[in-house]
């Protein structure tokens, strides 16, 4: 129980620092998006997901290759989910614009079902990734970071992008 709380606290604190430092460095650049620019202007460098995974989990070359393979496969398999998620969100948007409460309720149910399916696919991808790790690499805090990192990874046009897109 205490360990779980500690992990949550540390993960949250890391997110806070990352977000605030990114935002502040963006402010210094005249309002550019937080964390952007790959380290330009003294801000923190941004990495793609594979870069963050590699450094966070200290992946060796073979593990890095395995991780890429796993995520390439999971991303390809998620194609129908991506389309369905976007379509569901667009339908919800249309219902909102029409101010049709019954349609909004129905579209919300459809959308959350797709969001859940996508989250399950991302969880499966993380689980497969973790299966390639050694025990000292799969500490709860590291897995927690990977879970956060992979949110939305299967929902965009590529998975190995700089993560900050929230998608759903």
């Amino acid at each position: 129980m205490i360990a779980n709380r500690l992990i949550r606290f540390v993960a949250t604190a890391v997110l806070l620092v990352i977000g605030l430092v990114g935002a502040l460095s963006a402010q210094g650049r005249g309002g550019a998006p937080p964390g952007g620019g790959g380290g330009m202007g003294g801000g923190m460098p941004s990495f793609t997901r594979l870069g963050v995974l590699t450094m966070t989990l200290k992946l060796d070359e073979a593990q890095k290759k395995d991780a890429k393979e796993v995520l390439d496969q999971e991303f390809a398999a998620a194609e129908p989910l991506r389309k369905a998620l976007l379509a569901a969100r667009q339908k919800l948007g249309a219902a909102v614009q029409a101010a049709d409460q019954a349609a909004i309720d129905q579209a919300t149910s459809a959308y959350t079902a797709q969001a859940t399916a996508m989250a399950a696919a991302e969880a499966a991808a993380v689980a497969k990734l973790v299966a390639h790790l050694k025990s000292d690499q799969a500490a709860p805090a590291a897995v927690q970071t990977v879970v956060s990192l992979m949110r939305g990874a299967l929902a965009g046009k590529k998975w190995d992008t700089t993560p900050d897109l929230r998608f759903y």
């Binding site: 949250t12 890391v14 997110l15 620092v17 990352i18 977000g19 430092v21 990114g22 937080p34 964390g35 923190m44 460098p45 941004s46 990495f47 870069g51 963050v52 450094m55 966070t56 969100r89 970071t145 956060s148 990192l149 949110r151 939305g152 700089t162 993560p163 900050d164 929230r166 998608f167 759903y168």
Partner: peptide, 14 residues
């Protein structure tokens, strides 16, 4: 969509 979720980590260490 998802705008109220916290941002994802973009760097291994802040």
């Amino acid at each position: 969509a998802g705008i109220f979720n916290p941002p994802t980590p973009r760097s291994p260490s802040p």
